[in-house]
Design a protein around this nucleic acid. Structure first.
Lengths: 209, 209, 209, 209
DNA sequence: CATGAATGAGAATTCATTCAT
DNA sequence: TATGAATGAATTCTCATTCAT
């Protein structure tokens, strides 16, 4: 019986924990990190503010976990593409950029906050690590392409940085006051395709006319 | 005499105004927007905190003006490059990217704050406009290159966005915890060159092998 | 069987109760009352925080009992000295003071917390009663000495108060930032001896030169 | 004109500062340090809570200043007695103890809080310094008396400690729940006199019968 | 116009106590 | 009886903005 209770409790605690993270994620997605206050997070999660501190040492830890989870999810997707056996390097790069941008455009505020919105040093440090993971994933695609002769850039690190820069910068765009245009599906698809092409072109072996 | 005093006064006021903006700019460059507090700005400018409100409606307005001025300065430089008569489009793009990145790397914290550090909606709106100016400048270079056959991208807007993305994203990099490497001049020059090449490759007409 | 279980249960409960008190005592001895938090007390006692409230109405009650027990223990020791048949009053006083101070110096933080660290009114009240017991014990020694002519003070109550004051005040001293000196055994012994002498001198019949 | 304004302002600021200290002092005197909360202090001083932080870095600093001022005031009085030319050492000691105790009994809660109520490390450190001043003052009286042959104790430091212990411990007494008795003036005077005698006896040269 | 003292609405965090299991 | 998750009131400190002088 005590086993059963413990088990139920653990389940509920896990639910609480997830509710808090989910709540924080949503608040960030709506209004950025500045709106993710403990009180608000707790309220939206349906718990008391004090309870948040049973699951997390402090506010930073909550945000760090939201950030980590979100980025690591993206990284997994990118890695999966990078490891695919059936695609050429170009196809991989195209797919990686396309996928990333499409996903980011679905919650641009979240993407923006995760990538750019500044916070304290601790979170900044974690964010840096997370960004490195994305860059790392991109590096693998690029490195493979260079070895097999598809790509012709010179410096791997810079190339990866530029690709990530190009593809993440677009999360800024939809945040603009005239959001309208960007959210028609046709335009969006076209837009995404262009970005991927830009990146592929940038790195592929080429001969000038 | 009242004319004369008024004139002196106006001069004085302009001085104050500039001092406040300068002070804010420096504080942002040092510690980001979080360190640009009214009290601190006023102190460094050698005026009282109350006086700031004579020249600006509120804190946001101060920051908006700092941002605008700074970006418009960059835009002027970019435009000057775009309008040069003696460069090919490729050379212009290369020079534009090179110049922008080099300058940004000289005060990365300022560049970061201006481009990404979030504040309130008002400032965000202004920031969008400023970024559009940079993009616009880039568009001119790209458009000219497309017309004269140097560049072969498809969508002008996206290409510009990606170029700006790639070249601004790098301001994040030097803020990272392991800053060391980036600040040796050699490495910096190489790094900047790579970024410019990346961008040029991305947009130029090309035939695959 | 229900009888037997009840008996076992009672034993268990008594164990819990004592564990809680012991835990609180240790925590106070280490870091003062501020470190004796319900959570910490429970944890160290190996029980849940909720259980503490089965045995005690609230936190104050726990502390009150710790205080009472501790002081009553000291009082027993003092009373034992007071009742000794083989010592003169002077010797008793000397021994009482010596014993008390030595013991207090072994866990100065506990002694300090018990004697001085303030909490709420309820505990303060209990503390007063406990201190009275110490004073009472001292009074017995002093009263006997006055009757048999060894001591020559005027007011019994004040004399006892001063003795207790002198001998308890010293528990403050070792808590001071420059603890070092006090904890060499030689110095400690000398120190204790001086205090006892001070008290004996204060109350003994005396003729000025 | 700007001079005049500045002068008036300075006066008012000094008033605020004093009002805050006074308010804190009174709150401590009434309910101990636990009742001296920033909010309450500000309210009673007739200022906003934020203003307190213009005059003091943090809460501790407020309390430290209250403590310091109060104890230094007592120390001045004691030093004045110690330096008197017209009193014998015995008379000085008697007067010092009498004066201190009488004053302490006028606001026993304040005296208690200042001497014993524990707070944070910073304040504790300051308190220690302050207490040392009292002890130091007492040491001067005792040292002079030893040199001129009036006093016959062995260890100066311990003697001073015991005197301070005896005379400060009494501030505990009036805090007791049955305060009544202590506050009849006759009893008080008698009480005070006894304490002084206790201390004098304790240190004076004596021959046992 | 210029000053900077004063305001007070937050925001994060702690911890005794309660109560469903 | 025993657990420990959950509560939420309470407290300190910050900082943009106002306003009397």
């Amino acid at each position: 019986m005590s086993y059963k209770r413990s088990s139920l409790m653990q389940e509920r605690m896990e639910q609480n924990r997830q509710a808090i993270l989910q709540s924080a994620r949503e608040l960030i997605a709506q209004g950025g990190i500045k709106d993710a206050q403990i009180q608000a997070i707790a309220e939206r999660a349906g718990v008391s503010s004090g309870l948040v501190y049973r699951y997390f040492d402090n506010k930073s830890q909550v945000l760090i976990e939201v950030l980590s989870e979100a980025i690591q999810h993206e990284v997994k997707i990118l890695n999966h593409i990078a490891e695919s056996d059936e695609l050429t390097s170009k196809q991989k790069l195209d797919k990686a950029v396309t996928t990333f941008v499409k996903r980011a455009m679905n919650s641009p505020q979240l993407a923006y906050s995760l990538m750019f919105e500044p916070v304290d040093a601790e979170l900044e440090h974690e964010r840096f690590r997370s960004k490195q993971l994305i860059k790392q994933s991109m590096k693998e695609i690029l490195a493979a392409g260079k070895i097999n002769g598809e790509f012709g850039f010179e410096d791997l690190n810079t190339a990866a940085l530029c690709v990530v820069g190009a593809m993440t910068f677009v999360v800024i765009e939809p945040l603009n006051p005239s959001r309208g245009v960007m959210f028609e599906q046709n335009h969006k698809d076209y837009f995404v395709k262009q970005i991927a092409e830009f990146c592929v072109n940038a790195v592929q072996v080429q001969e000038e006319k």
